[in-house]
């Protein structure tokens, strides 16, 4: 009896592991095909622009508000902490470094995952279950070049750009909170920022935002594309909704994990 149960749980563990491995293998091949599709001719400029508009321009408002509130909170919070050491002069540098190296890339990626990633996942998932992807295949139209690679390109370009917007708006928010509300001198806010932020810090932020953009678009579109092969999510509309939730959760978690890894390696 006990042995039977043990065997059963070992079998389950085995099949779980197999699932994970085949899932990873699939996603790896998927990434290769999507990247290769980016170099296919003719370049799909119209679809690329549509995706830039959707992922990039469409996310501006939410990025603006997140950045403004984050920056202002950082300004207040930073002032409160630094004031204890009489170091309000460091406020500009503290806000800028936190935003450029950490919060800008991470929060931008999370916002894009929630807003655009979920939509891309659902779009591909619905196309899969209604046989639209099969129909594309049967017309010998490569769904990667036609649908997926433009999303990859658009995400890889727009997530770093959105991150820059996030950083600028956030720093301005910190300025408003620190200088206008708490009375830090404007000069020290600027000078602190300019003297402490190095090229390496900016470079780290850019690398992060690029990697996060890739993670989000890869996981979100991949989950939708493979909705019919993912086990345990059910079928039809329900499978698309579950997989969309999964896509946002998985991509957010991997953004956070890679944030730590990249910081540890590149700092």
């Amino acid at each position: 009896m006990v042995q039977g149960m043990r065997q059963n749980s070992i079998t389950q563990l085995g099949s779980f592991a197999l699932n994970v491995v085949s899932d990873l293998g699939r996603m790896g091949l998927y990434l290769l095909r999507a990247v290769r599709g980016c170099f296919g001719r003719p370049f799909r400029f119209a679809e690329f622009l549509r995706q830039m508009n959707f992922i990039g321009v469409g996310s501006l408002v939410v990025i603006f508000f997140t950045a403004a509130s984050t920056g202002m909170v950082l300004g207040l919070q930073g002032y409160y902490s630094l004031n204890k050491f009489g170091a309000e002069g460091m406020l500009g540098s503290a806000v800028a470094l936190t935003l450029i190296m950490e919060l800008g890339p991470v929060l931008t990626a999370l916002m894009v995952a929630g807003r655009a990633g979920s939509a891309m996942c659902a779009e591909l998932g619905i196309m899969r279950i209604s046989e639209q992807l099969d129909a594309l295949d049967c017309m010998a139209v490569d769904p990667f070049r036609y649908l997926i690679s433009p999303k990859f390109l658009a995400a890889l370009i727009s997530v770093p750009l959105l991150t820059v917007v996030f950083d600028v708006v956030g720093i301005a928010g910190g300025y408003i909170a620190g200088v206008h509300l708490m009375g830090v001198s404007p000069g020290s806010y600027y000078d602190g920022m300019r003297s402490s932020v190095t090229n390496h810090d900016i470079w780290l932020g850019v690398v992060k935002s690029f990697v996060f953009g890739l993670l989000v678009v890869w996981i979100c579109t991949g989950r939708g594309y493979f909705v019919h092969q993912i086990r345990g999510v059910g079928f039809g509309a329900q499978s698309v909704s579950k997989v969309t939730t999964q896509a946002v959760v998985f991509s957010s978690i991997s953004v956070l994990v890679f944030d730590y890894l990249l910081t540890a390696v590149l700092l």
Partner: peptide
């Protein structure tokens, strides 16, 4: 597949 033309049962329109 370039040899084939297909009408799916559910039409599968985009």
């Amino acid at each position: 597949r370039t040899r084939f033309g297909v009408l799916f049962q559910g039409a599968a329109l985009f």
